[in-house]
Simulated assay, not measured.
Amino acid sequence: MPYAVLVPAVFIAGLGISMSMVAATSAVVEAAPQGRAGLATGLFNAARQVGSALGIAVLGALLAAVDVRAALLAGAAGYLLAIATALPVRQPFPKKV
Rank of each mutant, 00 (worst) to 15 (best):
1 M>R: 06
2 P>Q: 05
3 Y>I: 15
3 Y>D: 08
4 A>I: 07
4 A>G: 12
5 V>K: 04
5 V>W: 01
6 L>M: 08
6 L>F: 02
7 V>N: 00
7 V>H: 05
8 P>C: 05
9 A>W: 02
9 A>P: 00
9 A>Y: 06
10 V>T: 12
10 V>A: 11
11 F>D: 12
11 F>K: 09
11 F>R: 10
11 F>V: 15
13 A>F: 11
13 A>D: 12
13 A>G: 12
14 G>A: 11
14 G>L: 14
15 L>I: 15
16 G>V: 00
16 G>P: 02
17 I>T: 12
18 S>N: 10
18 S>R: 05
18 S>Q: 06
20 S>E: 05
20 S>P: 05
20 S>D: 12
20 S>L: 12
20 S>K: 01
21 M>F: 10
22 V>Q: 08
22 V>E: 04
23 A>K: 09
24 A>S: 13
25 T>G: 15
25 T>H: 13
26 S>R: 11
26 S>I: 11
27 A>Q: 08
27 A>S: 12
27 A>N: 09
28 V>T: 12
29 V>S: 06
30 E>D: 15
31 A>N: 03
32 A>C: 01
33 P>K: 06
33 P>F: 00
34 Q>W: 15
34 Q>N: 15
35 G>L: 03
35 G>T: 03
36 R>F: 14
36 R>V: 07
38 G>E: 05
39 L>E: 14
39 L>H: 08
40 A>K: 00
40 A>T: 03
41 T>W: 07
44 F>C: 06
46 A>N: 10
46 A>G: 05
47 A>W: 00
47 A>N: 09
47 A>M: 07
49 Q>C: 05
49 Q>S: 11
49 Q>H: 10
50 V>L: 11
50 V>S: 06
50 V>D: 09
50 V>P: 01
51 G>C: 04
51 G>A: 02
52 S>T: 14
53 A>T: 08
54 L>R: 06
54 L>H: 06
55 G>L: 09
57 A>C: 08
58 V>F: 09
59 L>H: 00
59 L>Y: 00
59 L>G: 00
59 L>V: 10
59 L>P: 00
60 G>D: 02
61 A>W: 13
63 L>I: 00
64 A>I: 02
65 A>Q: 15
66 V>P: 03
67 D>Q: 01
67 D>F: 02
68 V>Q: 14
71 A>R: 01
71 A>E: 00
72 L>V: 09
72 L>S: 02
72 L>C: 03
73 L>C: 10
73 L>A: 11
74 A>D: 01
75 G>Q: 07
75 G>V: 06
76 A>F: 08
76 A>K: 04
77 A>Q: 11
77 A>H: 09
79 Y>N: 11
80 L>Y: 01
80 L>S: 09
80 L>R: 04
80 L>M: 11
81 L>I: 10
82 A>R: 05
82 A>Y: 04
83 I>G: 06
83 I>T: 11
84 A>S: 12
84 A>R: 02
84 A>M: 04
85 T>Y: 08
87 L>N: 07
88 P>C: 03
90 R>Q: 14
90 R>N: 03
91 Q>M: 14
93 F>P: 07
94 P>V: 03
94 P>G: 03
95 K>D: 15
95 K>M: 14
95 K>I: 13
97 V>L: 13
97 V>E: 13
